[in-house]
Design a protein around this nucleic acid. Structure first.
Length: 440
RNA sequence: CGGGGAGUGGCGCAGCCUGGUAGCGCGUCUGCUUUGGGAGCAGAGGGUCGCAGGUUCGAAUCCUGUCUCCCCGACCA
């Protein structure tokens, strides 16, 4: 993308509405614009990041055997009356009426809808287990939206739902999602620690929150240092490996991690002092098993192997996709701006010319842009007629992992500068070796 | 939902108390000079001051109502 043709409105000053760093940076770098309280339009830069996160989440769900589908944003109130949640949900549910005065709602989640879909088409134990998911916009009419996209009213969420014949099967589905989550967050380039949630809807040990560690997080967290050191996503572990998944789950259960809500001083004191870590965190995912709560209420039953009827056990698994954009920025930025992890960066490389009036620089920049793009490297070329310093400042703000800086001085010596956004490290390289480095 | 604050060019703000027909910085546009880490000078464009009533010769300013947004708390993927 050539910046001269892009829609990337960058601001020097933060709008006064923004309080936390990710919100300020998202506005300044032109990722989003607010259109109403807690509702945002995603501008091209922000949308690219959102799509990248969504795609990684999708790939890891698919890899774990979940089946993607798409359910509507608007749901019928009748569906929610079946589960009893229409009255129970309260004012966070956005209720609307259509032209025939039928009661509708903008979905805050999809347990009812998918349970009904499953109920209407699944008859036999042979069709279980299944895990289905979609990535869809949700709406929760928060009393007080804040922190930009981290606590918006409209948000993009991946929600998966598992159906199993019994609790043992549901546990297996749960472990599978647990591993999928570890892998997803690892690929996103952030550290997200699984923490046992306050209590699952039906109690038990099958409910975890995934917390991104960031100094500005909403809740205080306590965890064992091995969450920073070990590779929890077990690259060798297969999804069908029942014992392996169980071992992973047990290991997580034995390794302390809790938010201030669930913090247990007695267990905490058993963690060696040298391994105790405290910090703050942002919840970006939540998985839980809820048994037959919805299948019971909504009459989902299938024929069992013995000819009797079986009520499936369910679980649901959410990841806040839009919230992750803010959470990643909270976890990865500096005074100059955003520092995108490689996997979610809107572009991998940014090209800047220091002297817009230098024909040789423009020539070199244009060629590098063409070659990188042809090689499949996502590149943003700042070809605007701006001073070098201004371009570098906005490049830092936008947070692309690597910058190529081209100027007459370097070109005279046959070199360009390759800068690493995260470390700030700069290297003078020939154009050829810079290209080789970036396309490697 | 309780408490507090704010709506004035794209962004950040002043003006309001003490009514007289709108200003500053940044950004935008033009020209010239510049050019290796958010340039300088000169000029220009852009706002019926959230909206609706009211008071007044006259309202950004005073009064009433209303809408929106933000902050603190309680609540949350």
């Amino acid at each position: 993308m050539r910046l001269s043709r892009a829609f990337l409105p960058v601001l020097k000053e933060s709008p006064s509405d923004a309080q936390i760093v990710s919100h300020k940076l998202m506005l300044r770098a032109g990722l989003v614009r607010q259109t109403a309280a807690g509702i945002y339009a995603w501008l091209p830069l922000g949308f690219r990041v959102l799509k990248k996160i969504e795609q990684i989440v999708r790939e890891e769900q698919d890899r774990a055997g979940s089946l993607e589908m798409l359910m509507p944003t608007i749901q019928s109130a009748d569906l929610w009356r079946e589960s009893g949640r229409y009255d129970a949900y309260g004012p966070e549910m956005l209720r609307i009426r259509d032209r025939h005065d039928r009661e509708m709602l903008f979905g805050p989640t999809n347990e009812e809808m998918l349970t009904a879909l499953f109920r209407d088409d699944v008859r036999s134990y042979r069709d279980l287990p299944r895990t289905l998911y979609h990535v869809q916009w949700k709406f929760r009419d928060e009393v007080r939206p804040r922190f930009g996209v981290m606590r918006g009213r409209e948000f993009l969420m991946k929600d998966a739902y598992s159906f199993d014949l019994d609790e043992a099967g549901a546990r297996q589905s749960y472990y599978t999602q647990l591993l999928a989550y570890l892998r997803t967050f690892q690929r996103l380039g952030i550290r997200a620690v699984p923490m046992k949630a306050a209590s699952g809807p039906i109690g038990g040990d099958l409910s975890h929150e995934f917390i991104v560690l960031a100094p500005t997080g909403e809740s205080e967290v306590f965890y064992d240092a091995s969450y920073e050191e070990m590779d929890w996503s077990g690259s060798d572990l297969q999804y069908g490996d029942v014992a392996g998944l169980r071992a992973l789950f047990d290991r997580i259960g034995q390794t302390y991690a809790a938010t201030d809500e669930t913090h247990d001083e007695a267990r905490w004191s058993e963690v060696p002092a040298t391994s105790q870590r405290t910090g703050r965190g942002i919840e970006v995912g939540h998985i839980f098993y809820f048994g037959t709560k919805y299948s019971d209420a909504m009459g989902l039953r299938v024929s069992g192997q013995d000819g009797g009827m079986v009520t499936p056990h369910m679980g649901s698994y959410g990841i806040g996709v839009s919230r992750l954009v803010g959470a990643i920025i909270e976890a990865s930025h500096d005074d100059a701006g955003i520092i995108w992890p490689e996997a979610v960066a809107p572009w991998q490389v940014g090209i800047v010319t220091m002297r817009g009036d230098d024909a040789a620089s423009q020539q070199a920049a244009g060629e590098m842009y063409t070659k990188l793009t042809a090689a499949g490297v996502e590149t943003l070329y700042d070809d605007r007629d701006e001073r070098g310093g201004a371009k570098l400042a906005s490049m830092d703000l936008m947070g692309l992992p690597r910058q190529i800086i081209i100027g007459p001085r370097g070109l005279a010596a046959g070199t360009v500068e390759l800068k690493d956004r995260r470390t700030g490290e700069k290297q003078e390289l020939s154009i050829g070796s810079a290209l080789a480095r970036l396309t490697a």
